[in-house]
Amino acid sequence: MWLVFHNVKALGGLTFTQVLLVFGIADVCFSLADMFFGHLDSLPTYLRQGTLDVFYLRPQPLLLQLITSDISLRRLSRASVGLASMVIALWLNDIHWSAATVGLLAMTMICSTAIYCAVYVWAAGAQFFLVNGAEFTNAFVYGGRYAATQPASVWNKPLKVVFGFIFPMAITAYVPTLALLGLPGPSWLPAWLAWTTPLFAAWSWIFGLAFWRFGVRHYQGGGG
């Protein structure tokens, strides 16, 4: 990223330190989501081995069992890069601190983490009816993560549709950064949307859980 900025002075209308803030927020939230829900990535393994049957036989929600089957605190260390970036960026950028900006930052952290978690849930639900679906869903989970660390104004049209609204990645870090910095944002993504992250989080969860429920009902069993 530093290489890019060594050659150009601004990316998508943001300076290096401003993009650093986008990256920091996105990365911290994604790392948190990864810690709690990242284990859903191993669902295809369970599906192939048929070990998922065992989860069905226990009197607890399936999703809860899968998440808690492994919470790795070591994933927390991955958040440190993001956290450092975020702290430095918050320090370097000219932010007009007030109760509103602190509140916005806190709300963003919670809602963005929730959105990333929801994307994990969506991806897990999709595994039930996709053969080797991980390749496909990873494009959205990890592709989304990558997209979220960039200013959304540089995206092309398909990216805007997919990561702007279906998986609202632009809302997780880019738009809140605009709002924190007092920038207007592009016309299709005004900065005031930063205050609507709870709505986007709710939408993501409805979308994610609907897929999950559909997937669970679609389960074919592991042979046997």
Binding site: D53, Y219, G221
Partner: peptide, 13 residues
């Protein structure tokens, strides 16, 4: 057999 058992226990629809 297994399919029946899986339907009895709510694994399969």
């Amino acid at each position: 057999k297994s399919t029946t058992i899986k339907m009895l226990t709510g694994i399969l629809v």
